[in-house]
């Protein structure tokens, strides 16, 4: 339906015009769409990371049903398409009337939409977070498992509880292993937020598409959206390199890649040990 619509409009559109792209690029609604994409991605990645940590802890619980739950969760969220999860969440929200349009917000006045579809925000956030949690669980586990068990034993022998040892000793070391794949996750997240357009979230792509329909400039607006996605992921690439460089500043064997390596050579961590490699694999889903 989507694609059929685009085709009709593409056929109707007149010749491609870079000038139009320039005009759309800094349009207020497009900027707002981009902002929503970034905010959604940051929130989802943050919550997803916490869920990943929680799942890690659940997986090593002494209570069997808790371990089962964690496995089942990960199995489900890694085994079904994100798009399906989004729709499931959205449908169950409207099925159970969990969210009604809270208020009218004139967020996209020039488009003629005087009401942002708030119904989409919460289901999207939840779906992205839950999905991300399943992937982060693996990344967190690989990170923590890469730390020698002697570290936990030394911490315990000094009188630390599990929680304190995790916080002070294990996680700071695991972070170095977790952060590169976490960065890749966030890069994916920035792009995957566009999937929420199908449940009516006015993120970057959806706003752009709306222009495409009304102005009959589909190619121009989709290119505009692409430019913004590239801008986001590129800026994130810089931030990621910077963070990894700082984490590795003192004495680590992992050499962080330069931005160029990251962009053009399908960078993976140099194998320090097999775990680091395993994590790189996980990061490529």
């Amino acid at each position: 339906m989507h694609v059929a619509g685009l085709t009709v409009i593409a056929a109707a559109g007149s010749g491609f015009d870079w000038g139009e792209v320039g005009k759309y690029l800094f349009d207020r609604d497009i900027l707002q769409g981009a902002l929503i994409t970034v905010v959604m991605a940051v929130l989802s990645q943050f919550t997803g990371t916490l869920i990943g940590l929680l799942l890690y802890l659940m997986r090593r619980s002494n209570f069997l049903p808790i371990r089962w739950f964690a496995e089942l969760y990960i199995w489900f969220f890694r085994g079904t398409p994100l798009l399906v999860q989004l729709e499931l969440l959205f449908l169950s929200f409207s099925e159970f009337h969990l969210v009604r349009p809270i208020r009218q917000i004139d967020f996209f006045p020039s488009l003629g939409f005087d009401r942002i579809v708030l119904e989409a925000v919460l289901p999207a956030l939840i779906a992205f977070s839950l999905n991300e949690g399943a992937y982060m669980a693996e990344i967190v586990r690989a990170g923590i498992d890469s730390i020698d068990v002697g570290q936990m034993e030394a911490a315990k022998s000094l009188g630390m509880t599990y929680g304190l040892a995790m916080r002070r000793i294990i996680l700071p070391q695991a972070a170095r292993v977790i952060i590169p794949p976490l960065g890749n996750e966030f890069n994916n997240m920035l792009k995957n937020i566009s999937l929420a357009s199908v449940i009516g979230l006015y993120e970057l792509l959806r706003v752009a598409e709306a222009y495409g329909f009304t102005d009959f400039k589909p190619v121009e607006v989709v290119i505009t959206a692409s430019i913004w996605y590239l801008a986001m992921t590129t800026v994130w690439g810089f931030i990621q390199s910077y963070m990894e460089r700082r984490l590795n500043a003192s004495n680590t064997p992992i050499q962080p890649p330069s931005l160029m390596q990251r962009m053009f050579s399908g960078w993976r961590p140099k194998p320090v040990n097999t775990t680091a490699e395993a994590i790189a694999e996980i990061g490529q889903h």
């Binding site: 020698d148 002697g150 570290q151 034993e153 030394a154 022998s157 000793i169 700071p172 070391q173 003192s250």
Partner: peptide, 13 residues
């Protein structure tokens, strides 16, 4: 109780 391990187990960070 202090414990000293064969492989030191110092906190490398």
């Amino acid at each position: 109780i202090g414990m000293v391990f064969q492989r030191f187990n110092l906190f490398p960070h």
